[in-house]
Amino acid sequence: MQPAQGIVEQSHLAFQSLKLVLETAGASLADVVELTTFHTHLQADMAAFAQVKDVYFPARYPSWTAVGISQLALEPLRVEIRAVAVAGCGDA
């Protein structure tokens, strides 16, 4: 599978994948209490990534930490998302 090239496309794919994993586990994005994102181009991508994140998390929560790293396991990827969710704690 060839990942999308731009940070906006990769960010949407990452959040859509997170949403699918949560739904499979009986949870939702509303149940996410902590978000950690890893970026290979932190400064260059942060504004665009934050705009995409706000689509999936319109409120100013969950807790979010962004970490700049030199590379991810798959070379073309620019972002990876780690989330902690508590099933049933969200509003939706």
Rank of each mutant, 00 (worst) to 15 (best):
K19L: 09
H41L: 06
S63P: 00
L29C: 03
A48P: 00
K53M: 10
Q16N: 06
L74K: 12
M1Y: 14
A85C: 05
E23W: 03
I69C: 11
L42T: 07
E80F: 04
S70C: 01
L42P: 01
D45I: 07
P58V: 08
T37G: 06
D91R: 14
D91V: 10
Q5P: 05
G90W: 02
M1Q: 13
T24M: 06
L42N: 00
D54P: 00
P62V: 11
T24D: 13
V79W: 02
L74Q: 12
R60T: 13
S17A: 12
A87I: 06
A48Q: 09
I69K: 08
V21F: 00
I7V: 14
L72T: 07
Y61K: 09
A59Y: 10
H41I: 00
H12E: 13
L29V: 08
Q2F: 08
A83S: 09
E75G: 04
F15P: 03
L13N: 13
E80I: 00
E9S: 15
D31Y: 06
P58L: 10
A92R: 12
G68A: 15
A27Q: 00
F38A: 02
V55R: 06
A50D: 12
S11H: 12
A4Q: 15
Q5H: 14
L72C: 05
L42Y: 10
E9T: 08
F15H: 09
F49P: 02
V33D: 02
A4W: 10
L72R: 04
R78D: 02
A92C: 15
V21W: 00
L74E: 14
Y61T: 12
V52A: 00
E9K: 11
G90C: 05
H12K: 10
P62Q: 13
T24E: 11
L20F: 04
A44C: 00
L77D: 13
V33F: 03
L77P: 00
G68I: 08
F38N: 05
Y56Q: 06
A87K: 15
G26T: 10
F38Y: 15
I81P: 01
